[in-house]
Write a protein that binds this DNA or RNA. Structure first.
Length: 465
RNA sequence: UCCAAAGUAGCUCAAUGGUAGAGCAUCCGGCUGUUAACCGGAGGGUUGUAGGUUCGAGUCCUACCUUUGGAGCCA
């Protein structure tokens, strides 16, 4: 019933536009020698000029003879004022046909307007409808995340999602800038791999011609190590895949990870690189994305404190903190999400925890010469309960030690022969870490869930859109 | 895989075991400065599915389905 009436209205709207342009309902806004077209973000340079904006209807309001169109063009939002006595009836009535998210181009004079949120307003002289949208499923009122995530392709048009995606973009830009400025080579690792990189996680399998199964990568690190031996310092930046049935606000099955790897670095160098890296990322966002952080109502007090040096404690000291807090934590276990929150709650900066028991860490991590029961590993825990955002280590560079680790973990030696080669031909101490992009975005934006940090999240029960 | 919670109008939510409602959205009307505009009116429901208890079930019971949160694993 509702559908019918909408269709009717669309039909009417089509008829109206047809009168303007007999060829097609979809008009090319550039076809007419129109005003110079600008983006909303550049409005300040065009005050007093007659310009055109191409965009979509964000919202509209009417007070009878004065009407307001709120247009968004992807770079911002602008309120356009239609005054009846200044416009022909035909143009004034385009207001009625425009539904939420209809596309159109609007022409008029730009005015500075202190009452408007962006500081500018447009006095409309002409409106050209491009396409009348059907009833839009996202209304200006509240919606649940469950509903919105099903229409993620449309949800991305809303202001909050714009802010998150712009912060994500800034984080990725800062990551690349940081490594590029330090002479790192960006080295892409393969997505298809013959075996588990770390041997533990469940992987996504796929048929690979006559070669049997291929698996989607869960880390580019081993390839990064080959890169470090070839180029000295590299970073791998790509998607990674985990088939574990993790159902939490911190997990996706497909997520992005950046993994630097540096030859001749030890654990201390690695921790220093990580803290400088985090400082650069957070300070870049604070510097370049204040508007977005404001939209997200992010309290930036903690973010401003992200500067070198970050606090560093050993696994043992972390266990002590847990015990002092009355937590019956057993030495030798890995920290759960609740433990991480307690430990990081003691600090107001990201916290580096180093030297974990070898049993809870991966086979390729070098053992501490001072205490062979410990791995030269490091994790960075974000404050405010956001958990682990970085995991890294100094790698085992001794051939015999690495081989026995591979055997202890029951890994297929043939698959790791190339990796062992790195210890056969000019082995050197080296270290690296991986940073989860989505968890970092989630932390910096202050979000409830990582699913909002990636344009199209992949989770156990979600493969669409 | 395990534990827990939730499914009622397009959306967000109400409704002691006793006639299923509101706000937003949609449609019709009004308004010359609105700001998630406002005011008046209208349409809109197999209460996730299948059984059961009861004079009577949206509400109680059982199973299943779907989604969400958490655990484990991890970034």
């Amino acid at each position: 019933m509702t559908k019918l009436s909408t269709d009717n209205r669309q039909h009417k709207a089509k008829l109206k536009t047809k009168n303007n342009n007999p060829k097609s309902t979809i008009r090319n806004p550039k076809s007419k020698k129109s005003m110079s077209r600008i983006y909303i973000e550049d409005l300040s340079k065009h005050v007093g000029e007659e310009v055109a904006i191409h965009g979509w209807l964000y919202n509209k309001r009417s007070s009878g003879k004065i009407r307001f169109l709120v247009v968004r063009d992807g770079t911002g939002v602008l309120q356009c004022v239609m005054v009846k006595q200044n416009l022909s009836e035909e143009i004034f009535n385009t207001f009625d046909a425009l539904t939420q998210e209809s596309s159109f181009s609007v022409t008029g004079k730009v005015k500075a307007e202190p009452r408007s949120p962006g500081g500018f307003e447009m006095e409309v002289s002409d409106v050209k409808i491009i396409h009348v949208a059907k009833e839009y499923p996202i209304t200006p009122k509240e919606h649940g995340v469950e509903y919105l995530i099903d229409i993620r392709h449309l949800w991305l048009r809303s202001s909050r999602q714009h802010a998150i995606m712009r912060v994500r973009h800034e984080i990725i830009r800062a990551i690349r800038e940081f490594f590029d400025n330090r002479g790192f080579l960006l080295m892409d690792a393969p997505i298809f791999t013959p075996a588990a990189c770390e041997g533990t996680s469940t992987l996504f399998a796929t048929d690979y011609f006559d070669l049997g199964k291929a698996y989607l990568t869960q880390s580019g690190q081993l390839y990064g190590e080959a890169g470090a031996m070839a180029f000295g310092k590299v970073y791998v930046f790509g998607p990674t895949f985990r088939a574990e049935k993790s159902k939490t606000r911190r997990h996706l099955t497909e997520f992005w990870m950046v993994e630097p790897e540096v030859a001749f670095n030890d654990l201390n160098d690695n921790m220093e690189l990580a803290e400088e890296f985090l400082e650069h990322i957070v300070q870049s966002v604070l510097k370049n994305r204040q508007t977005e952080l404001k939209t997200l109502e992010r309290n930036t007090t903690f973010l401003e404190k992200v500067k070198k040096p970050l606090p560093k404690i050993s696994y043992e000291e972390a266990v002590d903190i847990l015990r002092k807090k009355g937590n019956a934590f057993e030495y030798g276990n890995d920290f759960g999400a609740a433990d991480e929150t307690i430990i990081s709650g003691e600090f107001d900066q990201p916290l580096i925890v180093h030297r974990y028991p070898t049993e809870v860490k991966a086979f390729y991590m070098k053992r501490d010469p001072q205490n062979p029961k410990l791995a030269l590993a490091m994790d960075v825990l974000a404050p405010e309960g956001y958990g682990e955002i970085i995991g890294g280590s100094q790698r085992e560079d001794d051939y015999d030690a690495l081989l026995s680790r591979i055997k202890e973990h029951n890994l297929p030696q043939e698959a790791f022969e190339w990796y062992l080669d790195l210890r056969r031909y000019g082995s050197v101490p080296h270290a690296g870490f991986g940073l989860g992009v989505e968890r970092t975005v989630s932390w910096i934006c202050g979000l409830e869930h990582v699913r909002e940090t990636i344009p199209f999240p992949r989770m156990i029960y979600r493969l669409t859109p």
